[in-house]
Design a protein around this nucleic acid. Structure first.
Lengths: 203, 203
DNA sequence: CCGAATGTGAAGACCGTGTTACGGATCCTC
DNA sequence: GAGGATCCGTAACACGGTCTTCACATTCGG
């Protein structure tokens, strides 16, 4: 399993624990994104949190490494998926990595009614027939599938689908929603609901 | 947060840690299902695993309490959603409980009698049937639900629901209250009380 | 019984969204 | 490198719904 560690300088024993846990440490900027990001809050907490937000925005699961006494500080944050406390225990780390690996495996197929997204091959199927979506259409649809059932404002969609530091007009979202609806077909266009003055909701 | 512990007999400090973590320990067979099930593998492991499978089958998230040296044994199992190792740390437990609570997302539901506002989906239900509210109607009703039981002047409502820099006539509030009452129905129109010369009160 | 406050209905202004078209950027083919 | 195709972001316009305001009716309190 490929994991990325941020910030670069790792705390005592962290890399040891990772390798013992069976992980392969790679660069976060590598061609193929890692399956999991480890952010270490014990040294440079601010940089670690920034890195975590970027990873989450990129759809990568995050494990935070945090001193036990700082746990209450991150409790209500949403930029981590799991955590371990220092000193890091290699056995525990392995168990948590395995769980994330297992979860991301079945995440390479996203299904909603007769729509299937294969995130491994970047292909979409509707009622058994392939649909060709452009990159942004695919990313937007994937986000909707992964976060169905709640309303997302245009700004939230821009930051989470287009990128954390995206700076552009919010109407961009409208147009992509329209293109998605068109490709989904008249029947299924209603999957994406417009919530006036708020944003869009899928499912 | 309501949690159920299985098997009944708990290990040293487990119940203490749960209570310190802010959880309410209830019976697994209670009328209302718990938000989370805790299974303790340190004593009767077999019974604990059986209980865990039942919980998972019922759609309840499971936290396993497991001695560190037994971790490899449960690593590849799928009947748990998270785990802690013994001895149990109350702070860590609280963080993990909070995460599960946040994921189950009951936090963004506002309820008053048979009215339910889901702030995540921006939908309203009255006696089980969806109600179609416009944006301002929804915002006003949400404010009332969040601040029931006291009187609010029109100016207070304008500044807190419409926005601090709002500049318009106070009669706008009256009209929106009227429309809300109409959509709530004759029966429930009295939920919003007019306090003459002062303003309005909900509940 | 009078004045003030509130309920009610309608009309116009305003805002948000759907839709289309267009320019720039990127990639592929020849 | 030219030419074309594709994709993305933005601007412009039209439409429809929503908000606000006004006028008038009604109720309430003194």
């Amino acid at each position: 399993m490929r994991v990325a560690v941020s910030p670069g300088a790792t705390a005592d024993g962290l890399e040891d624990a990772l390798v013992l846990a069976g992980a392969e440490v790679v660069d976060a900027e590598a061609d193929e994104p890692p399956a999991c990001g480890i952010v270490d809050l014990s040294e440079e907490a601010a940089a670690a949190v920034r890195a975590a937000r970027d990873l989450v925005a990129a759809g990568i699961e995050v494990i935070a490494v945090v001193p036990a006494d700082r746990l209450p500080l991150i409790e209500n944050e949403d930029w981590w998926d799991d955590f371990v406390t220092t000193p890091v225990d290699a056995l525990e780390f392995r168990a948590r990595l395995r769980r994330i690996a297992a979860r991301s495996e079945d995440a390479d197929r996203l299904v909603y009614e007769d729509l299937v997204l294969d995130t491994a091959t970047y292909q979409a199927e509707l009622a058994g027939h392939p649909v060709d979506l452009t990159y942004m259409e695919y990313e937007l649809l994937r986000f909707f599938l992964q976060h169905r059932g709640r309303v997302w404002s245009r700004e939230q969609l821009l930051s989470r689908v287009w990128g954390y530091e995206y700076f552009g007009g919010a109407r961009t979202v409208d147009v992509h929603v329209r293109r998605l609806r068109a490709k989904l077909g008249e029947e299924r266009a209603g999957w994406i609901t417009t919530v006036r003055s708020v944003g869009y909701r899928f499912g």
